[in-house]
Write a protein that binds this DNA or RNA. Structure first.
Lengths: 245, 245
DNA sequence: CCAGCATTGTCAGGTGATTGTCAGGAACTC
DNA sequence: GAGTTCCTGACAATCACCTGACAATGCTGG
């Protein structure tokens, strides 16, 4: 299904999809998209963000809340440039996204990728990707498509290890993760690595986040839980003043 | 057993479980889950909260109330948006929970962990009783996943020892626990520690709880039982005026 | 009701444990 | 080979916890 209010654009996408043998349903606004979804149960949804009546973000939210639709693959189309910052501050709830203008060829590639993923079922390799493209927790946003991290609306340059760590923390936002759990994910359960390594990564991330933080606030969203591990702040209540800033 | 109304999701979980050699029974709503449970007596239940007929919370409540099922490990699946229910409802009775969408790999890890726990012989039943993720007793709530303690609706910063103590008291809410029992859990049966240590911890907890208590009430939910030990108030009637406030 | 003992509340300080921080060197990428 | 990334070990900062002493309270027998 393609949900897109611009008729020409919708038609373009439809032709490409049908050319690859897919059966396509069009919806021209958010409400009708949702209505149609419940009846047709498509294999995939291409969803424009800017739409009349109900916008793409809300459509996505509804989809994720409904058990029967929750794992429908969603490829979201977003406007470029101006709203970049806005959009990246949000948790899209989509499995993948592309910014307009996009190349139809790439769109098709991503569609194939998403369909392959949902087809494979319980493939061990699949679950790593079969998650939201953009996750958010408090002031931190992780974009798995661009492999970018945002904090307080600004981009942060992360090393691969830092990215994996933050990605894990955002995915389990609010939950405490032990150093062991974290290290397990950072490496493949290599028993010859000190747990203290995690602390160093956390420290480096805290510094990078602090460097883009606007106010002189003395709190970090990356919270230490003494004797247990670390967690990423989900809600404001568990922010604690950090002794070192 | 997997209780999940969304057929696709249920099928996904089933495949993962069977891939690890488990025998799986599916239930598509709360009522049939309960019926099947009584017959099959499974080793573990993966339970979706949002289900038709009888929802997950009620299923959990029934399970915990029935002696033959009370010790069944329950892993609950909740929608991300309904975190409020988790924090407010709070008498889940589940042993662990995950928020949707979740990674199948992590689901498997938690299943293994729960099974390992319940495998430790049938005599360990007492020790593993009600190892819930979120526990509540009177005004006190302990969240083992987030590692957070709430009192009177507000968060309390606890040290590791205080957390273990409160966790134990909440788990056995209403029951008196001797200093010896408490110390046993705080440490691993270290015979060179004074019993009086427990008093200090209790005192510190009482103060922290008092600091967030709204009214000027002179009672603490953490009650001293003279000559025996301590207990956490389950019902209002055994609240006693505390001499020191 | 009172005395007297047992039990519990409270405080502050010393000590061990946990975490923050730094810089150097090995391993890796390009 | 230049530049990263990452681990490690050491030290500093911070924290948690036990202890011992004393004050306050509870209980028991008269």
């Amino acid at each position: 299904m393609v949900a897109e209010d611009d008729a020409d654009q919708a038609e373009l996408v439809r032709r490409y999809l049908e050319h690859e043998g897919h059966e396509v349903t069009l919806a021209h606004d958010g409400r009708s998209a949702l209505d149609l979804l419940r009846g047709r149960r498509p294999d995939l949804l291409v969803l424009d963000v800017m739409m009349p009546r109900v916008d793409g973000l809300d459509v996505c939210r509804v989809i994720r809340a409904e058990p029967r639709l929750a794992h429908l693959p969603v490829l979201m189309l977003t406007a470029r440039s101006s709203e970049d910052d806005l959009l990246l501050g949000l948790d899209l709830g989509a499995d993948d996204y592309m910014t307009k203008p996009f190349s139809p060829r790439e769109l098709m590639a991503r569609v194939r990728s998403l369909l392959r993923r949902s087809d494979r079922g319980p493939d061990a390799a699949a679950d790593r990707e079969a998650r939201n493209a953009v996750l958010r927790a408090g002031p931190v946003t992780v974009d798995r498509v661009r492999h970018e991290v945002w904090a307080y609306g600004r981009v942060i340059r992360c090393t691969p290890g830092e990215f994996r760590l933050l990605d894990m923390l955002v995915e389990h936002a609010g939950q405490v993760l032990s150093r062991t759990q974290i290290l397990e994910r950072l490496h493949g359960s290599d028993p010859f690595i000190t747990l203290r390594t995690v602390d160093v990564h956390v420290m480096n991330l805290r510094r990078k986040i602090k460097d883009v933080r606007p106010g002189p606030q003395d709190v970090s969203p990356l919270v230490t839980v003494y004797g247990v591990g670390y967690k990423l702040t989900d809600t404001p209540h568990d922010q604690q003043a950090h002794p070192y800033g």
